[in-house]
Each structure stands twice: as C-alpha cells, then as structure tokens.
Amino acid sequence: MSPQSVPVSRPARKLRAGITNHAATVEAAQRLRYRVFSEEYGSDLGAVIPGIDADSFDRHCDHLVVTDEITGELVATTRVLHQHRAQDAGGFYSEGEFNLDMIKQLAGNVAELGRTCVHPDYRNGATITLLWASLAEYLVRHDVEYLMGCASISMADGGLKAWNIARYLQREFMAEDAFRVTPMRELPHLAHPTHVEKPVDVPALIKAYMRLGARVCGEPCWDPEFRCADLLVVLEVSHLASRYSRHFMGQR
C-alpha cells in the first residue's frame, strides 16, 4: 500500500448536549457564533469585544450547546427566548425584522430560536441531532406551543438565489393566515422573480426546519447586519412530524 493510500484514523468523538446560562459557557458560544457568522460568512456584527458575537438578548435567553467531551470544545449552539422573558428583553429579536402582530395573538406559549451555528468540523447529523434533542427537552419543560425563528439565506449573488428559495418555500411550506407576518425591510437589488428555478438549493438548516414540520410565515426580510435574506418560520410543537417526535421527544 502506497503512503498516499494509507487511511487516516480520526480520534473518537464524545458529544454532550445541554441547556445553560453559565457565563463562561455562554461566552464560548458567543465566540463560536463570531467565528461562523463573521469570520466564515462575513457578517457585520459590530462586535464590541473582538472575537465575540454578543447582543442585549443573550442574557434573557437560554443557551443550548453541544460540547466535545474529549477536547472540551463547544461545537454547536443556539439560543431560545421564551415569551415570558421577551418583555424584559424589549421584545423578540425578530420584531426588528417582522411585524409579529398575528404571532402575538396565538393562544399558547411562544419561544424564539436564534443564532444557530455549528463548528465547521462538526457539521454532521450527530451534532445537529444532539442540538435538536436538547431543544425538544426545552420545549417540553417550558410548555412551548409555538417555536419561531429567522431562517437565513445568503445574498452573495445579489438576491436571485434568495428570491428563488423564498418562492419555493412559500409555495411548498406556507403557513396558515393566522401565522402571517410582514417584513420591515424588503429585499433590495432585484425585482421579484416570476418563476422558481429548479432544482432549488435550499440551505441545509432550513431543510432541517421543514423536515421537523416548520412553515414559512410570509415574505423575506433584508438583514443588513448578516447580509442575508431572512424568512420567519414557525413550528407548532404539537404538529412535530411523528418520526421526529418519537426520536427527539419520546413520551411527555
């Protein structure tokens, strides 16, 4: 066997998921967010502390994290803002992008998911499954009926891809009128396309949301900080696709 064909063994990984507000762990999550959003994707986060993505919502959120127990490195994170803490936070993060009047009229607890990211070396099914399992535990523990969040699409090409993905998702996964929202800032640069290109290259994270049973709530919004198009999506926890409900949530 030639040296070029010798297989390279990878060290075993032992991942652990949890929900935390511990200051040091939250800071590690903020550093991962900066690495992914700013260094990798070029978002203009306006970081006050170099290398850290932090905002006023963080202290009101519960932070869900996945850690590699072998290395001690935090490798995935997302945060959840429950409606009971949203007032102290000045509202939901997505209220800066969408009119949420219809969402606020829903009967039942609403929570907002945001700042989801995974270390590039850990972007696989095992990591995201652990993150979703931690999220499912949170939803049950805090009696959340509706989970919403912004699903982001790159605008690197000027917006055509974003419009095509948005139109496809609206056609296939549009929510009922009771969940409808309107964007604060329409997408710039391009006129609305009249057709959807096929095949549509939907980002992996949005595909995961749709597989869980999430629905799109309306037109996309332009996010100048992250330089992307955002779609508000909502998941009715009681309608979570059955195979994922069994996998992540088990028996209540």
Rank of each mutant, 00 (worst) to 15 (best):
I128P: 00
A111G: 03
G90D: 10
G108I: 06
L106D: 02
G114C: 05
K104E: 02
D101E: 14
H84W: 01
Q87N: 08
E97M: 07
K104W: 04
G91Q: 06
A86P: 06
H82F: 01
A126V: 13
T78S: 12
K104N: 08
T127K: 05
T127V: 10
S94I: 07
N109R: 12
Y93P: 05
D121G: 07
H84M: 12
R85G: 01
Y93A: 09
L113G: 06
A89R: 05
L106P: 06
V80L: 11
Q105D: 10
P120Q: 15
T78N: 11
I103V: 14
C117G: 14
G114I: 00
T77C: 15
D121K: 15
Q105I: 04
G114D: 08
A89F: 00
P120L: 13
E73A: 15
D101Q: 10
L113I: 08
S94H: 06
Y122H: 11
R123D: 09
E73W: 05
V110I: 14
E112A: 08
G114E: 03
D101L: 06
Y93C: 08
G96Q: 14
E95Y: 07
R85M: 07
Q105H: 09
A89T: 09
N124A: 02
A89S: 13
R123S: 09
A89L: 09
V118A: 04
C117S: 12
V118H: 05
R123C: 09
V80M: 10
A111H: 04
A76V: 03
L100F: 10
H119R: 13
G114K: 01
D101V: 09
M102Q: 15
G90M: 07
Q83D: 15
E95V: 03
N109P: 03
V110Q: 01
L113W: 06
L74W: 02
D101G: 01
H119N: 15
